[in-house]
Simulated scan of single mutants.
Amino acid sequence: MKKFITLVAKILLMILVLLIVLDWTYTTVYLHSSNRGKVENVFNSKARNYDVVILGSSRANNHFVPELFEKKGLKTFNYGMSGAHLFEASLMLKLMAERHYKIKTVILEADLGLCNEKESDAIAAKFLPYIHHSETIKKHFSKLENFNALYYIPFYRYIDFDALIGFREMYNTATDKPTNILDNLGYHPLGHKPGNMKNDLTALKPIRNKYYEEIKQICKQNHYNLITVMTPMCTNVKGLDYFEKANKIYPEIHNLENVVEGDQYFSSCGHMNDAGARMFTAAVIERFFGKNKKFRYEIKATHNNKKTKH
């Protein structure tokens, strides 16, 4: 019996050592990469200077064209991430501030994301390789139910999120396999072939969101000018009063939902195609940056009449 217990103990010890070695190997690979995704691009960076940084979900990633800002002399990067929530946007901004980014203006897309304070598994996982190397990331994740497993069990996070940060992604990162995520200064243009052109927002309820509050506080502490906007949707949407409800909670948010109208400018109901994104970006530049080169910002949120519901 004693020999059996000893054998089991040795096996468990070997497994633990293997998990620690694998954890170290995977983490080391991610710590030496900065060109496959936006999270690692920020985490493994040093101080950068921007006139404009864009944050948000796919409705930022697909809607703001940095090229048009650059033509106005504004150094810009779109750090919007498809699938991201305000949980991830706040953490990205924390990491930028921690790395002493000099940012004149943060444009935050905060509309549908205001209705929840959950993390996005697909995007939050991208921060996990660095959780033992960043108190900021550790603290941001510390309130999650599975935090102890993610933080204290070696290699667990790579197993739990294998499809996102597991062997395949680690291998592609180690071999420096290129992606298009950082192309076009972070902007991802969508095609003109329409997808689902219907949407129903009636079940969504905006709340006073703690991660949006964090973003406002970070901007205040670091002297970043914050412009928060709500971006357009197609004409066939139910529950468009969601945007008005959001403005009642946060009147400083600029409601730009109907700045671009016409389904020919949309790839899906919630995402404009490249033509629509360029029209929208041009309108944003004119509204917030168009008066002079030293920048003039509107303080009061714009209240637009909503489109007729279909």
Score class of each variant (00 low, 15 high):
220 K>F: 07
242 Y>M: 03
220 K>Y: 12
250 Y>F: 10
231 T>P: 03
228 T>I: 11
257 E>P: 11
261 E>Q: 15
215 I>Q: 03
247 N>M: 05
262 G>L: 05
220 K>T: 11
233 M>H: 02
210 K>Q: 10
218 I>V: 13
249 I>L: 15
258 N>C: 04
255 N>Q: 05
219 C>P: 01
234 C>N: 04
223 H>Y: 08
234 C>D: 09
235 T>F: 01
225 N>G: 05
255 N>F: 00
255 N>S: 06
211 Y>A: 05
232 P>C: 04
259 V>R: 10
212 Y>V: 06
222 N>M: 06
236 N>K: 14
261 E>C: 14
226 L>A: 10
241 D>V: 07
218 I>P: 02
224 Y>V: 07
255 N>D: 14
237 V>D: 07
218 I>Y: 00
236 N>E: 11
224 Y>N: 03
233 M>N: 13
217 Q>I: 14
223 H>K: 08
209 N>Y: 02
254 H>V: 07
245 K>Y: 02
238 K>L: 15
241 D>F: 00
250 Y>D: 04
261 E>A: 11
222 N>A: 12
234 C>I: 13
252 E>G: 02
227 I>Q: 10
236 N>V: 15
260 V>F: 00
244 E>Y: 03
252 E>D: 15
217 Q>S: 13
213 E>N: 13
216 K>R: 14
216 K>M: 12
232 P>A: 07
210 K>T: 15
243 F>P: 11
250 Y>S: 07
257 E>S: 07
244 E>R: 05
261 E>V: 12
220 K>L: 11
244 E>M: 12
238 K>C: 08
240 L>T: 13
246 A>V: 06
222 N>L: 14
230 M>A: 06
211 Y>H: 09
254 H>Y: 00
248 K>C: 04
227 I>H: 02
262 G>W: 00
254 H>S: 05
214 E>K: 03
244 E>K: 12
230 M>W: 00
248 K>R: 08
228 T>H: 05
209 N>F: 00
262 G>F: 00
210 K>I: 09
262 G>C: 04
232 P>K: 00
218 I>G: 02
242 Y>E: 11
217 Q>W: 09
